[in-house]
Each structure stands twice: as C-alpha cells, then as structure tokens.
Design a protein around this nucleic acid. Sequence first.
DNA 1: TGAATAGTGTCTATTAGACATTATCTC
DNA 2: GAGATAATGTCTAATAGACACTATTCA
Lengths: 245, 245
Amino acid sequence: MSSNGSQEAEFLAGYNPAEFPPVALTVDLVVFAVANKELHVALVERGGQPFLGRLALPGGFVGPDEDALAAARRELAEEAGLDLSGHRVAVEQLATYSAPDRDPRMRVVSVAHLVLLASDGASLPELRAGTDAAKAQWRPVHALDTGALAFDHAQILHAGLERLAGKMEYTTIAAALVPEEFTVSALRDVYTAVWQVELPAGNFTRKMRACLAPTGGKVQAVGAPASLFKVAGQWILPPLNRTKG
Amino acid sequence: MSSNGSQEAEFLAGYNPAEFPPVALTVDLVVFAVANKELHVALVERGGQPFLGRLALPGGFVGPDEDALAAARRELAEEAGLDLSGHRVAVEQLATYSAPDRDPRMRVVSVAHLVLLASDGASLPELRAGTDAAKAQWRPVHALDTGALAFDHAQILHAGLERLAGKMEYTTIAAALVPEEFTVSALRDVYTAVWQVELPAGNFTRKMRACLAPTGGKVQAVGAPASLFKVAGQWILPPLNRTKG
DNA sequence: TGAATAGTGTCTATTAGACATTATCTC
DNA sequence: GAGATAATGTCTAATAGACACTATTCA
C-alpha cells in the first residue's frame, strides 16, 4: 500500500518514527580469560540504579561512526580498562538482545560480543582503571552466582560460555586464550577451565597435533620439556567430544 | 569520572543522545525453503531508491513493544505474505549488521534472522501478496547472482546459508525444511539442496536413524515404500561431514 | 519385466579412547 | 632418587565410508 511518487525511497517510505521509534544501541561484552585452570569473566560493579551495586557485563553505547564491533573494541579499553595494544584479543559477535523491557528506563538494544583474552595461564590480564568510573574485576565463571547479575546479563553470559564451549569442540578458538606460542598442556588447561573436564593428556596431544605447528621452541617447567606450538588450522577434524573424556 | 550524585542511573549517566544518537532498528529475513532438491530464498524487488529494482531480503522495522524475533515473525507475514498458521516455521537469530553506512540514507541497524519453511519438497510455500507492496518471490540460491542484491544483503544471505549448512552437520535442523513427518530420502534431499553434494543413501539412513523415530506410516512413490519419521533428537553424533561424501 | 527406490548387510581402513612406556626435567 | 610431565606407542572396540544385496513398488 505504499504510494511512493516522490523520490523518497521505498525502504523508508513506510517509516514512521512515531510507529517505530529509534532505539539506543549498546554493546555488552563477555570477556573471558583463563588463570590457574579456571575460566574468569570481567565484570563491573554498577554504581547507580537500577541494579545498584550488582555486577554487570562491561559495555557501552555504539557511536555514530562505528559499527558494533568497533564499539566493542573501544569499550574494551574504556570500560574494562584493557590495554588493547598489549594483549592478544579476539572479538566476535554473540547475539543481539532486544526485549523491550530489558532496561527498565528506556529501550536499549544490545549487541553482545564474546571477547577472548590471551593469558599465560598463571595471571589474568590487568584491568586498569579506564575512563569509566567502575573498574572491571575478574570473577571465576563456574563459581559465579549468575542470578545476581544485572539486567539480562546472566542470559548473555550463559550464551557466551555456551558459544565458547561449543566452538572449542570443532575449532581452535581455545588458542585465543593462550599466548601466540603455547604448549599443548596450556591449551589443555583451557579445555579443563571451560569444559570442567580433565582430558587425557596423551590422546589430547595426538589429536591436537593435526591443527598445530611446532615453532621449535621448548619450555622448561617441572617434568620433561614441552614443545611450543602455533595454530596451524582453524578446524579440529573430527571434533572433540565435550561429554566424554 | 562520573559524578552521579543524583538518582540518575550510572548506566545512563554518560548517555548523551547527541554523542550516541539512537538508531533505526530493523530485521532482515533469510527465508529458505527446498523444492525439487534445490534451495530457494525469498526475495523482494525494491520499488524505490536506492537499489531500485534490485532484489533484497524481506524485512522491516522493529516495533516499540516487540523484540527482534517477534518483528521477524510479523514481517514474515507482512512482507513475505506468508500464512504463518499454515506452515511449520523455524526462526533463529543470525547476526546483527551495524556498519554506519550500510544504508546510504540514515543509520539502520538490522538484526538478521534465519527462517526455515517446511515444504513437501515438490512445491514451495506460497508467498501471498501481503500488506506491503512488493510481493516476495522464490529464487534458487545456488544459481543466484548475490552481487546484485541490495545493501549488504549478499553478505547476510551468505551468512544465512553458511549457518544452515554448518548446523546441518551436527543438528537435525534440516528437518525444519520438511513436513513434521518425512521420509529419510526427503531429508537427504535437503542435504543435497543445501550442501550441493549427493550423500550415499544407505549410509545416510543408517546414520540418521539414531536421531529419528518412525511414526509407523508409509509413503508410496516409485520404488519400495518409504517409512515416515519424526525428529527424535536435536543432535547428530558424531556429526556428518560436509566435505566428504 | 525392468527400472527405481528403501532398507539392510558386509567389509575394511581408520581412529577414538584407554592405558602403558620412555625420556627428560626439577626438587 | 623421587616425583612430575611430555611425547609416543599399543591395543581394542567402534564406526565411517564404500558397496552389495534384497525386497517392494510403479511403469
């Protein structure tokens, strides 16, 4: 029923801002890192209503000249206070949350992102105080009371965890949580942290070898020296099995 | 550095609509159905600038009282003219496209959805003329010149196809493209249509049986009578392989 | 009768999973 | 030396993939 005799484009011909009001667009970040075989997520404490004092995912508004991915990277520095130049960072879009009442004050549609930070497995990336007031803090994911999170962030966190755990079955995404050069056991620790399962070391090494390339380097700890590897392929074929050992 | 002494919430304390202008929120639909072992996508012809006369994905604005999924279902009826009550429909969120210049006229952020319509394999669901001017039409996906699509819809279509093809490896999502009760060969035709590969019938049947349940019914065509099945499980374990036969 | 299809059976190469073994290092 | 770890080797049960075979139907 569009009567578009003007040069007004068809796509916007039926656009009535009163009928379809614009929305505030934000990003929410599910930032993961591994330390001590435990998966941690970066959270900020809310300084105002609603959900005063509750923990929330870091996030912020999308600017007029950036897409959601760029906003996620910017907020990673501003909200979580992360030195992007000093860390290996992997960001991918997770899902968009658009329930009309997800923020009680106004309509806010949020594009959630999954952020993976590389760490040495012993310490977590430092979250410096950024430009925003609330400093981010690391919390162990599997010990977290997700019901206490603000807004629909428990749902978003769950989606992020499930995305990570699922993709670890058939891709080398776990390598985004360790340095560029890593030992097989460091990679296995990531699986242990995310899946909450101890994988047999021997079989894990044999299976992973297909998508890893040795760098020639060695690392000394207790026990035999471990070889360093880089990622050589994106896919784990056939996939690992999360449910079995 | 927020000085929030008022009851103004922290989350919106830094919200400056001039700095972070609201965006128009839309949904774009990648609607798939299978007929004659070919995968088809529903497209609409644009009636105005820009991209006048070019094909585009159906879509529309998200209303103030609905989330993106609800908007997708509504637009499915309005824009594609689909009788939702008369078809099995599966809708899932695909990804959000937010490049600032993806629409040359104004900022439009679109939450793309993947829509799967069940069909008998011979005919496509009828796309009646809906409330919108342009009637949707079916186009075979693999013969389509995606470069001719409007906006970033080629990218969205590609993402939809890849999502579908990928999930068909490890889930029974292909069953969303056939009636509730179906033969194994009808399901295999879906795989042929999407993956563009002929799967060996015998092995396919044996493998699929694990996640299907016979309904007791039989169907007669040429050849031996085929049993009817329903989906009994969400997962294909271990996954099918898209690259090999 | 012949062609087409459904469903099952068979065989083999592969490999996941379990477990053992050897080598190398720290304490 | 004791303990821990890395990396490889071994064995078996399971199965993917290839293919044959039988039964059942339509033309």
